[in-house]
Amino acid sequence: MSRFSERFLFSAAILVVGINLRPTMAAIGPMLDVIQRDTGLSDTGASLLTTLPVALMGICLLFTSRLKTLFGARNGIILGLALILIGNLLRWPWSSAALLLVTAILGGIGIAMVQALLPIVIRHRAGAAAAGLMGLYSTAIMAGAFLSGTFSPWIAQASDWQPALGIWAVPALLGCLIWWRVTDPRASVPEDRPHFPVSRAPRAWLLLAFFGLGTGAYTLVLAWLPPFYTGLGRSAETAGLMLGVVTLAEVLAGLVVSYWVSRSTDRRPAIFTAIGALFAGLLGLIFAPLALAWPSAVFAGLGIGALFPLSLIVAMDHGDNASAAGAIAGFVQGGGYLVAAALPLIAGLLREYLSDLTLAWGLMAGLCVVLWLIAIRLRPGQRITF
Rank of each mutant, 00 (worst) to 15 (best):
S5F: 09
F10R: 12
L15W: 12
V16T: 11
R22D: 03
T24S: 14
A26C: 05
A27K: 07
G29D: 14
L32A: 05
D33W: 13
V34P: 07
I35R: 08
D38R: 10
G40A: 03
L41R: 01
T50W: 01
L52W: 01
P53V: 10
A55K: 03
L56S: 01
R66P: 04
L70C: 04
G72Q: 03
L79F: 14
L81I: 07
L81F: 02
L81W: 04
I84L: 14
L85I: 09
L89A: 12
L90M: 10
W92M: 07
W94V: 13
A97P: 04
A98N: 11
L100D: 02
L101A: 11
T103R: 06
T103I: 05
G108K: 00
A112R: 04
A112W: 01
Q115P: 05
L118I: 14
P119Y: 03
P119F: 10
P119E: 03
I120A: 14
V121M: 06
V121Q: 10
R123D: 00
A126V: 13
G127H: 08
A128M: 11
A131W: 08
L133I: 08
M134H: 03
G135I: 09
Y137S: 01
A140Q: 10
I141E: 02
G149F: 12
P153H: 04
P153V: 11
W154C: 02
W154T: 03
A156E: 00
Q157M: 07
Q157W: 09
D160I: 08
W161F: 07
W161A: 01
Q162R: 14
Q162F: 00
P163S: 05
L165W: 05
W168F: 08
L173Q: 11
G175C: 00
I178E: 05
T183S: 13
F196Q: 15
P197C: 02
P197Y: 13
L206N: 07
A209M: 15
F210T: 10
F211H: 13
G212L: 11
G216P: 00
Y218S: 02
W224V: 10
L225T: 13
F228Q: 08
G233S: 06
G233W: 07
S235A: 09
G240D: 12
L241E: 13
L243A: 12
E250G: 15
V251G: 03
L255D: 08
L255P: 00
Y259K: 15
W260F: 10
S262W: 13
R263S: 14
S264W: 08
T265R: 15
R268A: 10
P269C: 05
L278Q: 12
L282E: 01
G284Y: 01
F287K: 00
A288W: 13
A288I: 09
P289A: 11
L290C: 01
W294K: 00
A297L: 05
L302S: 02
L310K: 11
L310N: 10
S311C: 06
I313D: 00
M316I: 01
G319C: 06
D320A: 13
A322C: 11
A325W: 06
A325G: 15
I328Y: 02
G330I: 09
F331D: 00
F331C: 07
Q333A: 10
Y337M: 14
A342C: 09
L343H: 12
I346N: 01
I346R: 03
G348S: 12
L349W: 12
L349R: 14
R351S: 10
R351T: 07
Y353A: 08
T358R: 12
L359A: 15
L363Q: 07
G366H: 09
V370F: 14
W372K: 12
I376V: 14
G381R: 06
Q382A: 13
F386P: 09
